[in-house]
Nucleic acid binder design. Sequence first.
DNA 1: TTGATTCATAATCACTTGATAAAATAAATA
DNA 2: TATTTATTTTATCAAGTGATTATGAATCAA
Lengths: 218, 218
Amino acid sequence: MVPELTKLKPKKRLTPSDREQEIIDEAVQFFAEFGFNGRTRDLAKRIGITQPLLYRYFPTKDDLIERVFKEVYLNWIKPEWSSNLKDRSVSLEQRLVDYYISYAKIVHQYEWIRIYMYSGLMGNSMNRRYIRIVEDEFLKPICEEIRHECGQPSIKKHPITPLELERVWVLHGGLFYYAIRKNIYHSKVLNDFKTIVLTSVKIILEGSKKFKIEDLES
Amino acid sequence: MVPELTKLKPKKRLTPSDREQEIIDEAVQFFAEFGFNGRTRDLAKRIGITQPLLYRYFPTKDDLIERVFKEVYLNWIKPEWSSNLKDRSVSLEQRLVDYYISYAKIVHQYEWIRIYMYSGLMGNSMNRRYIRIVEDEFLKPICEEIRHECGQPSIKKHPITPLELERVWVLHGGLFYYAIRKNIYHSKVLNDFKTIVLTSVKIILEGSKKFKIEDLES
DNA sequence: TTGATTCATAATCACTTGATAAAATAAATA
DNA sequence: TATTTATTTTATCAAGTGATTATGAATCAA
């Protein structure tokens, strides 16, 4: 049997935009796997080009890394997440499940979560920024909806307590940690993430009804 | 005001064991902060010695890293965690709170969790090993205790279901993620971790009673 | 076909980085 | 104090690493 080599070498002279996209696509995977200390020569070899060619498309390694960040983290936040969470024509349980399934489709991706963690470890401010967005856009609305579900006063009347927020963070973090176990530790996890979400949401909602946030008296 | 310099330079000629311990202590912090790509010269400068001196005490950088791992991850698992979790003379709620407070004292430390995450990203098998230990030694016993609390059959009779385990992982990961937000993202978190644990445990236990694991009929 | 243009590579530079060997210096011992 | 011994530093190497320059090769317009 003769090895099929037809698609192995004809890689020369793509159009600039094709080549650029190819570099970016591979760079995303490459940096996700090896971190930002990964060598440009290794990246080039993986793409099947020479290392100086990278510098024709990106002036410096940092520029390439910046582009990788843009590729992965631009517009990943879906506006409908926030609005859907507030849509009381759907049950809160259903809204939470929908949100976490949709959120996980993006955030649990191998490249997304690994680059996010590398970025966090290196002290990049991106993580703190997103943490804040998640808190303001999703977790605080969730608090409000839980208040409503439990017949408690609106957060406009009684501001969210730090503990209340942390309670929602435990759910959020618990589901996020599923992806950490899977994509960072490469640990074996149950495939049926949807059921995990459903069960966790049920439990949290039930628990929130039972153990309401106290000290809401002004 | 004259700056106090008395303790700045008299660092020469420690006993070998003192010097070695000094190197290890600083290396733990150094690699926790910058990852294992941190430069030996930077580490040496931080300690206040020259870089070749490191190589008198550790033949290679990898040997030093190996020693750092030992320093941080040797014997961190307390045998009493497992036994206390099974001690039915204490309420399950109390046992879980005690366990997570004690567990967090070790695992939530800045150095511990950061080196753990760096190690995970680089594919070190340590993480998978510990995940397995946590699962076998702590989470599975917790499942058994929850079964008992809820009047369900023992895991000896009906093996733990994957979903059941994942439910406990959500609690575990949720509390772990608190430390990630704090020590990896450097995000602001509520200081009172104990109350977070207490609330989360109450909710999970309540939810587990309400939504028992089904399909336990043989 | 030919020549201009642009993509791609080979060769190489300057600097970093883990590691080594020789020189210097501090403590210990007689 | 003089001598020995062990610690620490100075100087340096060899391999790597981001980046540059000059050369080669493919495409397209005429």
